[in-house]
Simulated assay, not measured.
Amino acid sequence: MNKAASTIAQQLALMQLSDSFFPSGSFTLSHGLESLVQENKLRSPIDLQTFLRLLLRNKVGPTDVVALIHAYRGSAIGDLEAVRQADAQLFAQTLIEKTRETQRKSGRALLAIATSTWQDSQLEILEKDVAKGEINCLHPIIFAVVGRVANLSERNTVLAFLHSFVTGLLGAAIRLSVIGHIQAQKVLLNLATDIEETYQNATSLKLSEMWSCTPAIDLAQMRHQKLTHRLFAS
């Protein structure tokens, strides 16, 4: 495969992993959005943009993305112990039980799809680890390995992950009637700088430096399971 063909293959893999068509199960999550909407605490595109910006900068970026980066780097050098360590640290850092549960479910769904799509020894080993209960199989960790398997760079793997995360929540907002499709595209464009800076800020953090601070959103996630009517798993 020549360089141009290789670049095109990588670009197509980037689009495949970041597309909501890719069935990892993450589209079933609202991350507390459904609670806030039902409680009339999030009502406008501006509210939604603030919600997404807080998640990116104060939660997903300094936790999920940091763990993803370290898992990717471990996978890139064939160090699956580093991948397992990132998985364990992220599990310990994720304090909300429902979030841990949904991360595990979507991670296992992603791993099952990846092993059916790509041939790679690391994916096979991780499947055995899951069967033996030796890894939590959290979604950001598996996404990191899949990005490496698909020959994406660390940067593009993170961007695919964040794009998928944001578009999944925009889709949830549309289903909850917070915004329409055109407004969702405007919000996505407005968050481009936040997505880029989320990656840049996470690149230098150690696993031990992961942090999050979104108390209102965390409480909304905890209240979600008590809602009378629910469209989403979280």
Rank of each mutant, 00 (worst) to 15 (best):
L176G: 05
F161Y: 15
A172H: 07
H163L: 11
L176R: 00
L176Y: 05
A173V: 10
A160R: 08
A184R: 04
K186L: 15
A172V: 10
H181K: 14
H181V: 13
G180V: 10
F161R: 07
Q185N: 14
I174S: 03
F161G: 10
L189G: 01
T167Y: 01
T157C: 11
A160S: 15
K186N: 12
T157N: 04
L169Y: 01
I182V: 15
A172W: 03
L176T: 00
H181W: 09
A173M: 08
G168F: 06
R175M: 13
L169T: 02
R175P: 03
T167S: 06
A184I: 10
R175Q: 15
G180K: 03
A160W: 09
A173L: 07
F161C: 03
T157E: 01
A172Y: 04
V166N: 01
V187Y: 09
H163D: 12
L176V: 05
L162E: 02
A160E: 12
S164A: 14
L170P: 01
L189D: 12
N190I: 00
Q185C: 11
K186D: 15
V166G: 01
L159G: 10
L170V: 04
T167A: 04
H181Y: 11
T157Y: 07
L170G: 07
T167K: 03
L189F: 13
V178R: 01
N190K: 07
G171R: 04
G180I: 10
V158E: 03
I182D: 15
R175N: 15
S177Y: 09
V187F: 09
N190F: 12
F165E: 02
I179C: 05
L169N: 02
V187M: 05
T167G: 02
L191G: 05
Q185W: 06
Q185S: 15
A173C: 13
L189T: 13
V178L: 05
I182K: 10
F161L: 13
I174A: 04
N190E: 14
T167I: 07
A184K: 05
N190C: 06
L162A: 03
K186V: 13
H163F: 11
A172N: 08
V178D: 04
Q183F: 09
L176S: 04
G168D: 06
N190Y: 04
T167D: 06
G180Q: 10
T157R: 02
H181Q: 12
S164V: 03
G180L: 08
L176A: 03
A184P: 02
V158Y: 00
L176C: 05
L188V: 04
H181M: 09
H163S: 13
L176H: 06
V187S: 08
Q183Y: 05
Q185V: 13
A172D: 07
K186Y: 14
S177N: 15
I182Y: 11
L170I: 09
Q185E: 14
V187P: 01
G171F: 08
G168A: 06
A160K: 06
K186E: 14
G180C: 13
S164K: 13
G180T: 12
S164Y: 14
F165S: 00
N190A: 15
G180F: 06
T157L: 08
